[in-house]
């Protein structure tokens, strides 16, 4: 097995595996026979598979991210606006109940 050919094939292997670059006939013939170069090609293929699989590992953003982004920009967050609206509604409802209660308790006549 030619060491020179080995060196040449190993130089083009990354582009062959990752970039789909085709090998010359001589390089292909060498790869078919050389176990060392075959092992190298297998390493690159494993690398490719492992790298692709990293993409599928989902990562959830921290729960505070949206709030922090909006706060940094000084923009109101919808959830806060919603919260303020709910608080205001509760306040109005409590006041209405209190007024209604007082009226009911007022002695008639």
């Amino acid at each position: 097995m030619s060491r020179l050919r080995c060196r040449k094939v190993r130089l083009v292997l990354p582009a062959h595996v990752f970039g789909g670059r085709s090998l010359s006939r001589r390089d292909e013939a060498h790869l078919g026979q050389c176990l060392v170069c075959q092992a190298d090609a297998a390493t690159y293929r494993s690398m490719q598979t492992a790298l692709r699989s990293l993409h599928d590992e989902g990562a959830d953003a921290p729960p505070w991210l949206v709030e922090k982004v909006m706060a940094t920009l000084g923009l109101p967050e919808r959830r806060q606006r919603k919260g303020a609206l709910v608080a205001a509604a509760v306040l109005v409802a409590s006041a209405a109940v209190a007024v209604w209660g007082r009226r009911r308790l007022r002695p008639v006549g």
Partner: peptide, 18 residues
């Protein structure tokens, strides 16, 4: 429209973080 921007942030935050 800041609410629209917030919506964009919510829908892309996980991809950006990933």
């Amino acid at each position: 429209d800041t609410a629209a921007f917030e919506e964009l942030v919510r829908s892309h935050q996980h991809e950006v973080y990933g």
